[in-house]
Design a protein around this nucleic acid. Structure first.
Lengths: 238, 238
DNA sequence: TTGACAACATACTCGGTAGTATGTTCCTCT
DNA sequence: AGAGGAACATACTACCGAGTATGTTGTCAA
């Protein structure tokens, strides 16, 4: 991981034991990954705890040992999804690159993280849906609101970047809120139609990301800076 | 309804007794509307037939008298959602207006229909999700595939229009498939964040539609033709 | 008048599921 | 060594919800 610990406020947001930190508790992490897949494939309420347990070749008791309730498990998966996004995007938002290049890099990173971690991203969408419904208990409702806040602050990251570009390039945006929502809608659209092919995933994902970001940027009246793609080459995990 | 019966292939697609045809069976129509709301608020699997019945101030038996199963009900709602979209959009696709104006009008009409009939549109999104999962029986799977086909043919309507614009205005699209997916993603994004205000819905919706279509068109490198908005003024139901 | 059928309402079955209560195993610390 | 607890597995409860079976009411036709 190239952009490791630069103390960027992520710890405050997600707590000491990051979900990405596999060291402390392997099985908790395994549950999260498996649950994310189940939620993606069947949706929250159509997924039973037993389903997750079975996919893990474990039992219900094991899951309830790590999570208080099904909702709790869902929230944890949601958190991890958001954390993935932040870790991918935030470093680019903090650099001192020109506004347009910054936005483009954020977008590419976001787009690729989205395709790499499909399961978690789909859970995020369900989280919003769950929030619009009524979640049962008061505590759950509070937790959900907190999660939505995290999501909103993520969107704000993009909106700020977009407005910076608009200002610097003297573009008028109409309603900046709608512009940024459209912008993210384009980047997020892969959730609905992309599924990874075996062949050359990384190359394919880069191509798609390039197209999407080009489109999204043109939507706000800016042109894709080609340097935005060069940074992606080094950090391949596994 | 200004663009009534011009025999545009809709009858073949949705059968003789259109879901929009309230004459024959009022209660069936009522069920569809209520079910759409329930599905929107709680999602498919979290909505029970009893929920729908209760919202209708009727009983479970009444619903099962009109629909064989919960899945059947869902499919019917889905169909009606698609029909709403087709009826709103297809007339504009058939005119002999210039390509860009045609696309713009289709987009505005689609966008506004989306905001007016929120409940049904959210069901459409769930339909795609359900399709990606495994639906239980073979018959259901077949029906779902058929519905997805309808949806695809709707998307094709837009893709054709987009490609026509690209050709006529000598725009190069990169991957046309991704471009049209992004295009629709922008138009459809309201599903996730728009909820109607009491005040002046129609004006508000027009404003939003205008912003969205402007963004979407710029994404493919085209400019919003202002005449595209003028047609919307007459046909206000109720 | 009656009988047949549509349009529901009521009452019930039965499988699935969240959550709990209670083992069992193993590891660690003293 | 053994006491205690973490990390599970097993067994059970209680409820909910889809689907069904059967009752009731109105209506229309012969």
């Amino acid at each position: 991981m190239s952009v490791a610990a630069q103390s960027s406020g992520l710890e405050e947001m997600f707590g000491e034991q990051s979900s990405l930190n596999k060291s402390n508790s392997d099985s908790r992490h395994d549950i999260l990954v498996t649950a994310a897949n189940c939620f993606r494939e069947n949706g929250y309420s159509a997924t039973s705890i037993d389903d997750v347990a079975h996919a893990l070749k474990a039992t219900k008791g094991m899951i309830y040992h790590h999570f208080r309730s099904k909702a709790d498990l869902f929230f944890a998966v949601y958190r991890m999804g958001m954390e993935i996004n932040f870790r991918a995007t935030e470093p680019h938002a903090k650099g001192d690159a020109p506004a347009l290049l910054k936005l483009a890099r954020m977008s590419v990173a976001h787009s690729i993280a989205l395709m790499r971690e499909q399961s978690f991203q789909r859970v995020l969408a369900q989280g919003v849906a769950l929030h619009q419904q009524g979640s049962t208990t008061a505590a759950q409702r509070e937790t959900l609101s907190e999660l939505i806040d995290i999501r909103n602050s993520y969107e704000t990251l993009f909106r700020k970047a977009i407005e910076a570009v608009a200002e610097q390039h003297k573009i008028k945006l109409g309603d900046p809120s709608i512009a940024s929502k459209s912008f993210l809608a384009v980047l997020n659209s892969t959730v609905f139609w992309y599924s990874p092919r075996e062949d050359n995933q990384h190359a394919e994902q880069l191509t798609i990301a390039r197209e999407l970001v080009t489109y999204a940027l043109r939507g706000i009246g800016a042109d894709m800076p080609e340097e935005a793609l060069t940074f992606m080459e080094q950090d391949n995990d596994e």
